[in-house]
Amino acid sequence: MPWFLRKLSHGGLLILGVTFISFSLMVWFGPDQTYTLIGKNATTEQIAEVREQLGYNQSFVVRYGHYLADLFTFNLGASNSSGESVNRILQKTIPVTLALMLPGFILGNLLGIALALLATGKKDQWTDRLITGFSVTGMSISFLVVIIFLQVLLCTPYGLNLFPVRGWQVSGLASYLYYVTVPTLSLIFITVGYNTRFFRAVFVEEAGKDHIRTARAYGASTMTILWRHVLKNSLVPIITRFMYTIPLVVISGSLLIESYFGIPGIGKATFDAVTSGDQPVLKAVVGLTAVAFIVIQLFTDFIYKLVDPRIA
């Protein structure tokens, strides 16, 4: 089978799996909305009517089929809670989340790479031990603790009181920086320990290869070795980690940050949908995340070919 078809069938199976599991969990076993919509004292007929509207009286297979069909025709429907169209909700929330999460995500990765390169260059010396110790410490602090700590430190009268405690009223660069700084710092703090550790392991492995010895035997400086040879040879694992964590950080990470800071992004919208059983929103988010994963996988395979001549 040609490469593209193989990838595509693999992706198709993955989408089937993701949608099946999320449908079972979130829709079939998810919260029953009958009473939320019509209140406690409804008549039997009213209940039956609402259940039919919601599709509750149909079988699992039929409902799953509808779910898939809706997803692939982008017929995402409207939110059960607010009545707003799901497309509109996505259009409103996704840019907020990207603006909120991307700076911290990118800086957390770059900082991790820089620290890991430094540690690799000074392997087994005190700089390396310091960086390794720092990353283990970072890994041992809970996300929630970091957020609370930074909030107290930067946003309250008990600390520096420079930034807002919560919210997102962005209307320009200044207000953007005002609201994005503390969440960004939190995200960097959370991710940098894990990133540094991961990248250090990759770089140390690369630095042990034979061709690094060759480079040194031909007079390359430690800087040249790290920046050119080690870094370029490590691009495949770096890109893999970067690409594959994008959907997870954007959805999972934003879920906590947005709930905590009260920011109207996709994470908060999704979490509200989980707890209220807002099926149209859930369908869209889970389905689109799965599709994003497949697209990212295809795209990542394509980038591999650009950075590593061995991958044909």
Binding site: L25, M26, G30, L248, I251, S252, L255, L256, V286, T289
Partner: peptide
């Protein structure tokens, strides 16, 4: 492929 906290929340 399912965002972790979303999955946990759903379960």
């Amino acid at each position: 492929s399912i965002p972790f906290y979303l999955f946990v929340a759903a379960v």
